[in-house]
């Protein structure tokens, strides 16, 4: 877990000490990166030049350094950590098994095995109610 904003590392220190440590015992346990100037955010497509800040963007990167998922929101709505964790589990399952996870998949729910035998037969394996 890495967090990044255009604030300096000094501001991160004060935020950790003055506020975050009051929400989480010992403060957040991950590196808080400074993207001063927004150059990193620009490369990731989340730097808002007008406001001079990085907007809310989350990137899931696999052990090979490949981006697997991204989610970008305007600032007023926060993220859903449960959905992030579900995506991590789904990508890890896919990597380990070669199966694929249909819409609404949660650990323990059925997966699909892609191949010619499945073509046109997904309706037998997956129902719309599985999406929820």
């Amino acid at each position: 877990m890495l967090s990044a904003s255009t604030d300096s590392r000094f501001t991160h220190k004060i935020w950790q000490e003055e506020e975050l440590s009051k929400m989480i015992d010992g403060g957040v346990p991950f590196p808080m990166l400074s993207d001063a100037g927004g150059k990193i955010g620009a490369v990731y497509g989340v730097y808002d030049e007008d406001a001079g800040v990085d907007i809310r963007g989350r990137f899931l990167i696999d052990p090979d350094g490949v981006i697997r998922a991204m989610e970008v929101l305007t600032p007023e709505v926060g993220r859903n950590v449960a959905e992030l964790i579900r995506q991590v589990k789904a990508f890890q399952h896919v990597k380990a098994t070669g199966e694929v996870t249909p819409s609404g998949w949660q650990p323990g729910k059925p997966t699909l095995k892609p191949g010619p035998a499945l073509a046109g037969k997904v309706w037998k394996e997956w129902k719309p109610e599985n999406a929820f």
Partner: peptide
Amino acid sequence: YSGQWVVLCFYPGDFTFV
């Protein structure tokens, strides 16, 4: 962090509300 799953989160600023 090569070899590990990484979540990289950008956000508008320290001390903001959401």
